[in-house]
Design a protein around this nucleic acid. Structure first.
Lengths: 124, 124
DNA sequence: GGTATATATGAACATATGTTCAAGTATGGA
DNA sequence: TCCATACTTGAACATATGTTCATATATACC
């Protein structure tokens, strides 16, 4: 690719500086819809917290109750509960009640696969 | 699995409540090393910001310069530059200079694959 | 019913995070 | 050499985020 002079191009009513207009247009067209993009960002944000991430990784081995996850991560029951709520809202985990306890598990194997793919990425 | 009474178990010098000790032990053993876990969390955290995510998604189509990415995302050059620095620190992107411009691209196809896997996850 | 356990919830707080702004560096051209 | 362009950097600031604490709910057992 050869360097170009940047130009000011009229767009959306305001002047925006753009060098490779076609490239930007192409990126715009291939970009997911805002709602989808937001959900993807929320997904990553949720997994970006070390404790929530540890919870997800732990649940790969099967269901666990809240106090087990608290013991594993070393944070309070309350903090784990808050974390699980967020993961549940994003449909990353679900739960089932057995007596006084709630057992959480990964919502589907896609989550497990996503984690596996990410771990693999880390190893170059 | 059958519900059990919780017990207090001596561990690491302090009393920790734990219901399914074996399950917690298993999770501990299968857990990635702290350093690896930290890198994974940092990876997700980086991708959890909508603008950084848009940058990564855009770069799937090939290299782009800073001002193009600024035009695409609608944020300032400076903000994009800060975003790119973080992505570069995590080896998600790299750059090449051509004259006054820096062209950024995804560091390797694993990043692209990771994004694809995540997008697929969103579609159930 | 009354008490204990397991978990959830909301507000408050301290910290982390992203953007802006005002510099600075690097390259190219007159 | 001087200026313009493209990008970077660091500090300041406003907002977002995770944890804690106190309280609430839900189930089990006596």
């Amino acid at each position: 690719m050869v360097a170009k002079k940047s130009k000011f191009i009229e767009e959306e009513g305001c002047q925006v500086k753009m060098v490779h207009l076609n490239r930007v247009r192409q990126a715009r067209e291939k970009e997911p819809a805002p709602a989808e993009l937001g959900r993807l960002a929320d997904l990553y944000k949720a997994m970006g917290d070390p404790n929530r991430l540890r919870i997800l990784l732990a649940l790969r081995g099967g269901e666990m109750c809240v106090c087990d996850l608290a013991a594993l991560t070393g944070v309070s029951d309350s903090a784990v509960s808050h974390a699980l709520r967020r993961l549940k809202d994003l449909a990353l985990v679900n739960n089932r009640r057995d007596g006084q306890m709630l057992y959480y598990s990964l919502d589907d194997h896609h989550v497990s696969q996503l984690l596996a793919a990410s771990l693999e990425h880390l190893h170059h």
